[in-house]
Design a protein around this nucleic acid. Structure first.
Lengths: 210, 210
DNA sequence: CAATTATGAATGAAGG
DNA sequence: CCTTCATTCATAATTG
């Protein structure tokens, strides 16, 4: 089940629930409270920025960062000096010719090719367009996966929950992950209000100003 | 589908459809908006915490830190408002701290640790989150494999496309990524961070502090 | 153009 | 160890 669905459902229920009565379910904040909130957030923002600066200063001389793994963040060094613009990562796309060949290879069975085999295939396909061994590997893997999934679907009828349908079901971006696992228990320093948020960990609502 | 979108949409719909009294004097937030806010604040809190931890680690052994692999954060079982448990993710995810420690160990060379060594490492890492000896073993094995794959000259087809290789190529500091990509700048007016809220960035929607 | 789908890529785990 | 599987992430492609 996804987050949004539940939220939406709740909202709907509330809406149907009746007229203006739902006012009881609405949180109200005064301007002062809003201001307090804003300041608190600003504090966090400032801390983040300062830490960034500190870290930058610390690591300035280290020009070799051996192996950053960013699964969720773009790490393309394609940031334009001036505007911090991020150009889209280019994804490989099989040309029709490559696709044809790949399908032929796949249809011959023989499971997943060995590394050496992949090298050969890649060399062959590179005559028909940009391609890398990784692409070949991924494509074939994916085909096998699809095949498996389809088999499963056939066995269980059209109840193919396991298909690669709605890919958004379990997705959590970088920050979604952080959000789902907020650990602010031992935050050092004195952000005057970390206490104010501590109860949020227990999912008991947002009674900040209560 | 990201939960944020639905939540916001639901909130909007509710506002329009509800037709309740204006309430012009105070700010009104729906539960959904409140939830968004709550989580966004948690984001900052968590980011701050992690930055602090990272900074601490950096200053402790300033010389031996090769970099920061920032993969997904470990995701605890979610408790959804209402009491249900979202099925816990069964796959282990290293926390940033764990990753850093693991990387330190790996960068020290020494090949694959003995079983006893792994036990120790696991014990150490368990202070930073859920982990098992198998996880440690797998991770280190995987790193060696990555290293081998890189040696084999696998990729370099077109600038990206790695098969199980971590990009040693793009030199970009950890914070450059955090700061430039998720765009947690301009905090003053709105709080926004990840893609999840991208729709909110285009005006309307959740103009919380407008 | 926002929401959805399709699919390339990444990666933890299992098997041999 | 190395290979393969299975799941998840991220983005392009598409659709409405």
């Amino acid at each position: 089940m996804e987050w949004g669905a539940k939220a939406a459902a709740a909202a709907e229920a509330e809406e149907r629930g009746g007229g203006c009565e739902p006012l009881g379910y609405v949180k109200v904040m005064t301007d002062e409270q809003m201001e307090v909130l804003r300041k608190q957030i600003s504090i966090y923002a400032t801390i983040c920025e300062q830490l960034v600066e500190m870290h930058r200063a610390l690591t300035e001389h280290q020009d070799s960062i051996a192996g950053m793994r960013f699964s969720n963040l773009y790490c393309d060094p394609l940031i334009v000096p001036g505007g911090h613009k991020i150009t889209a990562r280019q994804r490989w796309q099989p040309t029709p010719m490559q696709l044809q060949i790949l399908e032929n290879i796949f249809d011959q069975g023989n499971g997943t090719p060995s590394k050496q085999k992949i090298k050969e295939i890649t060399a062959e396909l590179s005559h028909h367009g940009q391609i890398s061994e990784t692409n070949v590997y991924n494509w074939i893997s994916e085909m096998h996966q699809l095949q498996r999934d389809q088999m499963g679907g056939m066995m269980y009828g059209s109840n193919d929950n396991n298909m690669r349908t709605s890919g958004t079901s379990g997705q959590m971006s970088f920050y979604d992950n952080i959000m789902s696992n907020p650990r602010i228990d031992h935050f050092p320093g004195k952000v005057e209000s970390s206490r104010s948020f501590s109860h949020l960990q227990h999912g008991e609502g947002f009674d900040m100003f209560g």
